[in-house]
Design a protein around this nucleic acid. Structure first.
Lengths: 334, 334
DNA sequence: TTGAAAGCGGTACCAG
DNA sequence: CTGGTACCGCTTTCAA
């Protein structure tokens, strides 16, 4: 910039104004500067700009696992929205480990990002105090903290659990198990919905029909497979299983088939997420659609509005409505 | 930092040195400063640091599609390696559009990242000149440019094509089709391997047995589905299909089954990528493993070494070896 | 419409 | 071991 200014015999201020196409610049001067900028392929140094303006035009996303299709889709939707407004996106994965998550938050905070989005693996809202202290706007994605007023974008998880369970009931299942997720709002909400649906029906509820996989967010398939093995040893064994997510459901189906039982005839299975390959599975998987991409897009828009706002607005909670997508895995001649 | 310095009656330089635990600082002073830093929860401003050191401790990754499991896994492996060395990762998606890709490169370049990694959708190496001009180290991922000396991490694509095709041949297929990808090195290499394998056999080669999907990187399933519909109208129709990637292969299988034909009995199918859900598909999918995660990890290590190097080293090409993972979709009683 | 000066939050260099 | 000074590349303010 200094070079351009010197060459053209104008000041850096002038060049700077042209770059940001500030109004008060002579048309002739503007053209000259613009021309030289193109020639030199000049790009302003964002780090320097960030230093003085305090805005980086970058946001951060922390997810438990990038490879998990749900988070990949969220990231995809997010990235699209942000790109259009010229924001960059830093992504990091917490591997489902709260310590790593805190560390990542710290790292991103020190980059002075304009906003953070987090699908948290925490059970407590503690580490968000620090973000608030730094006055960095943030949005919780997919998992919230009950009673904590914070910006949130996700799906109504109680509805997810209720819909899934009711679907199994109407498919004729009488002994419905649930493979639950970790201690996040998402898992808790779905469990709650499951319980509500059962309570609303005349079906019996068995204590040991609710089991938790080892690490449902990261090694989902294995978690599901293991959990189902346990359920299969129960007597009476379940005839319907509602799974915390689709990869778990896939593990569950595989476990059932290995035993020689049939899906959905012997045991019906439903998952959550409606991943795009669900319909091509060995047993096409019924699933509760979570609108993953929409979650990313809404979060993107919310975060942009947060950044633009001069004063931090009231936290908003955006709750998308889930829907059952029925497929083979629950199609019983009930 | 200024505050801390004032409060403690030392200079900012001293504080700065403590932060970076520079050697020549009195133990007592160090402790005092450290203490205060903890108390205030102080984090150095990376933008400021970047401005003076010229290093951002951040790298960028551009992929055609984040949701594509292959790239998600690459990103996952990469992210792990970089995190351990305290680097952040900016991810952006080019949607398979060369224009968008160039735009993203520009954007990331203006952030003065320490290095870039790109799974390019370009057919020409033109836009990489700009990166070189800025002297930013970069690594091509998955797709290279023949004859262009650049850092590269990927799989030996000719071997991929050869292995897949030979696998179909040994499964007893006599009329082998190929659904190819776009004009990238990856797709070209696989096609080359396919041709080599056929030439090395006594099988006939049909011109119209090679078809290309619409947008193989982004809407893979649809691309595969459409392409297979075309192939099915041929006479004689193929009895084996080698697909550019797994999502395409899934679309292909679905198209075949819709017609009432059987996989693998009537038509065997093999894909590339060995995605983790392949084994749970309606017809468990044979696939050529591309070591996606390893690609990410190797790329991460390479990029770190590039950053550390004072003088740009000779470009290295890291070529991982693929392997066939046979499953139901090619298991014929040949 | 233009530009001089100050400074964003740090680090490098070198003198004390 | 400690700190003064200059400066990284850009924006802001305000005077010309």
């Amino acid at each position: 910039m200094k070079d351009i200014a010197r060459e053209l015999g104008v000041s850096v201020v002038t060049v700077s104004k042209v770059v940001r196409n500030h109004s008060d610049i002579g048309e002739e001067t503007r053209q000259r500067v613009l021309k030289r900028i193109k020639e030199l392929n000049y790009e302003p140094n964002m780090a320097a700009r960030a230093l003085v303006t305090g805005r980086t035009y970058a946001t951060g996303l922390i997810v438990p696992d990038l490879v998990h299709p749900f988070f990949a889709e969220v990231a995809g939707g997010l990235s699209d929205v942000l790109r259009r407004k010229n924001y960059s996106l830093l992504i990091s994965s917490s591997q489902g480990d709260p310590d790593l998550e805190r560390q990542e938050i710290k790292r991103l905070l020190s980059r002075r990002l304009d906003a953070l989005m987090i699908a948290s693996t925490e059970w407590s809202a503690e580490s968000f105090r620090r973000i608030e202290a730094q006055k960095v706007p943030y949005v919780l994605i997919d998992r919230g903290f009950p009673g904590m007023p914070a910006n949130f974008v996700g799906v109504d998880d109680v509805a997810v659990g209720r819909l899934a369970t009711e679907h199994l009931i109407s498919a004729g299942c009488r002994r419905i198990a649930h493979i639950r997720g970790p201690a996040t709002s998402t898992a808790v909400g779905r469990l709650e919905g499951y319980t509500q649906a059962l309570t609303g029906s005349d079906l019996a509820q068995f204590q040991d029909y609710v089991v938790m996989g080892r690490s449902p967010d990261v090694d989902s398939w294995i978690s599901g497979h293991e959990a189902m093995k346990k359920l299969l040893q129960l007597d009476p064994r379940p005839d319907g299983v509602f799974c915390y997510n689709d990869p778990i459901a896939i593990g569950v189906i595989d476990a059932i088939l290995e035993t020689g039982l049939l899906v959905p005839q012997d045991i019906a299975v439903i998952g959550c997420g409606n991943l795009h390959y669900d319909k091509s599975l060995r047993v096409p998987l019924s699933s509760v659609d979570q609108q993953s991409r929409a979650i990313g897009e809404r979060a993107g828009k919310l975060v942009l509005s947060l950044i633009e706002a001069k004063i931090p607005p009231q936290p908003r909670s955006i709750m998308l409505q889930p829907a059952v997508v029925p497929r083979e895995s629950t199609r019983r001649s009930a």
